[in-house]
Write a protein that binds this DNA or RNA. Structure first.
Lengths: 188, 188
DNA sequence: ATTATCATGTAAAAGGTTACATGATTTG
DNA sequence: CAAATCATGTAACCTTTTACATGATAAT
């Protein structure tokens, strides 16, 4: 579905591959992410499918770049995808939970340390969603009121990021308490 | 990492490919899932890496089956993985959020319908984690007290499933209210 | 009769990561 | 002087999905 992430962004305005990566990392990174190499490959295939067109722009001080624009065919494809409702929950994978599930033999203080570090990382993410991500969305509405309907939906997805991180942190806290209680003073 | 899910289960006891799939779907499906075809392929490659061995069992009434057992090398590999702490958050993907992010032009009653259906599915999952999954875990402890340490960690992962689904449902409810408020009576 | 369950697999395609390659400018 | 940012891409590899193939028994 990287295809539709790309079409979605290019439907706002034309962009370069590199720029697309930055847009993704700055707005949808908590529910979609891709490596640059994959973005470039996908852009190529979307162009050969006539969903995009590109033109090369020369820059004096910086490397040349390729500006991609969505075509009518591309817009149509995007619209069809947007109008087709999802009928199933999309499963996801969490390596931490997989590891934890099988970790009965692992030293408990190691698990506690691991969870404590991950808690810090989740707290950082939470703060990002609560400050910079939130500001980006509210700023975009001020300058261009016509994108208000977009901003409402962007805010809904941001809110999910916030709720998810809060929930994850709460779960880590609960799990840390259980680990400290049940295995107190026990060696592995 | 399907590799480690397989090694993890086979470290409890030897199993058939088909059985492995059932075990996964019955216990870790909310943070790990795989198709049967992939399980068979991975079993094959793990066996050629000497992490597993297999023996064919004949059954009169049912098809033959292949029982896989973990080797010492496999146990070692699993232990190494379990002892290596995760240092990063694993990103995930959610097609619903991706679609919603770009859905400003979509008919709002369609979005409301889609979210309402998904809410029902999440409610079902939540109930499963709160009843059958919970029972499976507590039953396993009663009959085999030596797996108590395992059961504590299984319960922690089950709890994440429960918290995740509760959070998701709450987010859908909030989002439904926003959609109904902001776009009341408006045509797409 | 048809569908579900048991049971194993192969082949092709799609999706995604990692490593490599290039090369200028800017910031610390 | 080293690292980050800008900018694009290829090749090899790994992971995952989808479709196909077979065939018996049990349940509805």
């Amino acid at each position: 579905m990287l295809k539709y992430a790309i079409l979605g962004f290019l439907n706002y305005r034309s962009m370069f591959g590199y720029e697309l990566k930055q847009s993704m990392d700055g707005s949808i990174q908590h529910f979609w992410h891709s490596k640059l190499s994959q973005i470039y490959m996908t852009l190529k295939s979307l162009e050969s499918d006539k969903l995009l067109v590109s033109e090369i722009e020369n820059q004096d001080d910086k490397p040349d770049r390729k500006r991609y624009s969505i075509t009518e065919l591309g817009k149509q494809d995007l619209r069809e995808w947007l109008n087709k409702p999802l009928l199933t929950i999309n499963p996801h994978k969490d390596e931490l939970l997989l590891k934890l599930f099988f970790s009965a033999s692992v030293d408990k203080s190691d698990l506690i340390q691991e969870l404590s570090l991950l808690k810090k990382l989740h707290l950082q993410k939470l703060k990002t969603y609560q400050s910079s991500t939130k500001e980006i969305i509210s700023n975009s509405t001020k300058h261009e009121p016509k994108i208000k309907e977009d901003a409402i939906l962007w805010e809904a997805t941001r809110r999910m990021g916030e709720m998810y991180e809060s929930m994850y942190i709460q779960w880590i806290d609960e799990t840390l308490i259980i680990l400290q209680k049940k295995f107190k003073g026990r060696k592995s």
